[in-house]
Each structure stands twice: as structure tokens, then as C-alpha cells.
Amino acid sequence: MSKNIGFIGLGNMGGRMTGCIVRAGQAVLGYDAKTENIAAAGATPADSAAAVMAGADVVLLSLPDSRVVEAVVYGDSGILAAAREGQVVIDLSTSAPDSTRAIAADFAARGVRFLDAGISGGAAAAEKGQLTLMVGGDADALASVDDVLGYFASNIFHIGESGAGHTTKLLNNFLNAVALSATAEVMVAAKKAGLDLATVLDVFNKSSGVNFATINRFPKIITGDYLKGV
């Protein structure tokens, strides 16, 4: 059965994920506080977040944090009030697990299944449709929307119950931050020692010091293209 897809939050990540869905030939009903983001992603504009909820079977959220998610869910023209039984809502935001579980319970009371889907891979992977998702919530609900998620994700893991996906996302972010910080310190030391940084990175990437930062970030950062390296 075909699904009507809605997307709320079409910024740096959400816009790219929406673009993947649209390029696959699927229409997306979209809403963003910046209306220009809707057109840029190729979505059909909705007047409000509630209008997206009213017009879609599967609704995806890509918002900055739990505070914004809660405002979209519970605020004026919020999506909870517009929810109807049988819908699936997927929160792709970086959200607090406790907030996620509370929201999931409120949607469940209305017959709506809520999945928390932490994402990893950044804008480059989102553009290519190669994100990794770590999903918490009902396994059957995830199975019912894996085709939608497959438009922009190449790896989808069911982690466990509600909140487990966002918990795993936070843990991944912590580990990534540690590796990034440590790599930055090492690269500064290498520069002070007069070493060729490109060669040092080649060594690390063939050795036990290899990590996401050495492969994907610092090859760009050392050439001065910092924004593309983060």
C-alpha cells in the first residue's frame, strides 16, 4: 500500500533526506519555519506542522532538539492534536530519551506509533541517501516504514524499546567527539613537530589510530577547507 509521506523540519539534514525521497519519485508534504527550505527540498508546502500530520500516513521530524520537538508536538498547531489512529511518526532529531519516551506514550494513547531514529553520517551521507539509523520503538512499526527510511538510509538498526535509538545516538556523538578532540590534539602536535600533515594522516589511516575524523574530516581541514570537514 502506498503511503502519504510528510516531513517537518527541512533544514540542513531534513532537506537532504526529503530530497532523497522526492528524487525517488515520492511526493512529500513538507513544513519548515523557513518556507524557502520547502521548495529547495522539492516538497509540497503545507501551511503548518499540523497540516502535515493531517495529510500524511508517515510523518518524519528533523528538528534541532527536544525543546523544538516538544513545541511541534504540543504547541499551537501541534501535531499531537492532529494525529489519527494508524499513523507512524519518526523523530530523526537528536533528542533527549526521557522526552522521547513521554512523547511516544502520548502518541500511543491516540493509536499512533512513534519511533525515535537517531542518525549518523552527516550532510554528505544524507545527500547520498547513505545515512545510518539507530531506531527505538515497536519493531513492527519500523518494519512498516523501512521502505520510507530506505530512501535516505543504507543501514537501519532496531536498537530496542522507545528511547533506545536516541540513547544510542547520544552515545555515538560522545564517542565521535572524543575521537575528534583527540585527533585535533595529535594533529597540532604533528604540526609543531614539523611533520607533513597529509603524510601523517596517511599513516594514521593505515594504522591503529584510524578513526572517522582521520578519514573524513582532517584531510579537508588541513587544506583549510574547515567547513567541509565538519
Results as ranks from 00 to 15, higher is better:
155 N>R: 10
229 G>L: 04
203 V>I: 15
171 L>Q: 09
90 I>Y: 08
30 G>W: 03
134 M>I: 05
204 F>K: 03
227 L>D: 14
134 M>K: 06
194 G>M: 03
69 V>W: 04
205 N>W: 01
227 L>T: 11
27 A>H: 09
81 A>K: 09
21 I>T: 13
141 A>F: 00
227 L>G: 13
160 G>I: 07
175 L>I: 14
117 A>W: 04
109 A>R: 12
71 A>P: 08
210 V>K: 15
116 D>R: 00
169 K>N: 12
109 A>G: 13
190 A>D: 14
51 A>T: 13
31 Y>N: 12
132 T>K: 00
100 T>S: 14
89 V>S: 05
162 S>D: 11
85 E>C: 01
220 K>Q: 15
77 S>I: 00
7 F>E: 13
208 S>Q: 08
116 D>G: 01
55 G>H: 07
132 T>E: 10
77 S>M: 10
215 I>Y: 07
110 R>A: 08
86 G>V: 04
128 K>I: 01
48 S>Q: 05
100 T>K: 03
138 D>N: 07
118 G>A: 03
13 M>F: 04
76 D>N: 11
229 G>N: 11
217 R>G: 09
162 S>M: 04
173 N>V: 04
90 I>D: 14
129 G>Q: 08
207 S>M: 04
45 P>G: 08
97 P>M: 02
214 T>M: 02
174 F>H: 09
121 G>C: 03
224 G>M: 04
104 A>R: 03
25 G>Q: 11
201 L>V: 11
153 A>R: 01
224 G>A: 00
214 T>A: 01
227 L>K: 13
81 A>S: 14
193 A>G: 12
105 A>Q: 15
227 L>C: 06
146 D>C: 02
54 A>F: 02
123 A>Q: 12
110 R>E: 12
137 G>P: 05
17 M>W: 07
123 A>N: 10
51 A>V: 14
168 T>C: 11
11 G>P: 06
58 V>N: 12
228 K>R: 11
203 V>H: 07
1 M>G: 12
145 V>E: 08
212 F>Y: 15
104 A>D: 12
189 A>C: 14
159 I>T: 05
226 Y>L: 09
120 S>Y: 02
149 L>F: 01
209 G>F: 03
150 G>V: 02
203 V>W: 09
190 A>T: 12
87 Q>V: 02
11 G>S: 03
197 L>G: 09
137 G>C: 01
51 A>K: 13
142 L>P: 05
98 D>Q: 11
64 P>W: 09
168 T>N: 10
110 R>T: 09
187 M>F: 02
107 F>D: 14
182 A>H: 06
167 T>H: 06
16 R>A: 13
139 A>G: 07
226 Y>K: 06
130 Q>W: 00
112 V>E: 09
